[in-house]
């Protein structure tokens, strides 16, 4: 499967395209929610922004399987790179903060600070993902 993902004429690029769409939807939803908590578009009620959560789930549903294909294609490349761990720390942290910010019944005290952090983590996760291409030490083991 690793060889297929790496050497098939289309597999790798199809996975890249789905990964891009998925990440755009996932990160796009996260950014919109963070900006709203920071005060942009205040005239729209924050609880209604829950409607964008399914968009983020759809994005994750595209980005995770396609990301697994990309990972399987070059497992040593990603798993030996500390940037890969940073990417996941950023994305998991950002997703957790979105959950926290959307708990309307118990809003966090410093919600604006958390939203700013959330925005930075989404963008940092994307930047780290991009850096993976330029920072690997090992491409393949064999």
């Amino acid at each position: 499967m690793s060889v297929w993902a790496r050497e098939d004429q289309y597999a790798y690029f199809v996975a890249l395209i789905f990964h891009a769409w998925g990440m755009a939807l996932l990160v796009g939803g996260g950014i919109v929610i963070a900006l709203r908590v920071l005060g942009a578009g205040k005239a729209a009620a924050l609880p209604k922004f829950r409607g964008f959560i399914p968009v983020m789930w759809a994005g994750a549903a595209l980005a995770i399987p396609s990301g697994l294909v990309l990972l399987v294609a070059y497992p040593a490349k990603a798993l030996t790179n500390p940037i890969f761990a940073i990417k996941f720390a950023c994305l998991i942290g950002a997703a957790w903060l979105v959950r926290r910010l959307m708990r309307i019944d118990a809003p966090p005290r410093n919600s604006r600070g958390l939203a700013a952090l959330c925005l930075l983590l989404w963008l940092g996760g994307v930047a780290a993902g991009k850096l993976l291409l330029h920072t690997y030490r090992i491409l393949t083991v064999t």
Partner: peptide, 27 residues
Amino acid sequence: LFAAVGLFDLRMLGVARGVQLRALHRL
């Protein structure tokens, strides 16, 4: 770009009803 424009487009297409379009446009 995609966050602001793409999600505004999605709202016009019926996603996240309840979010006022005029307010969302501020993004």
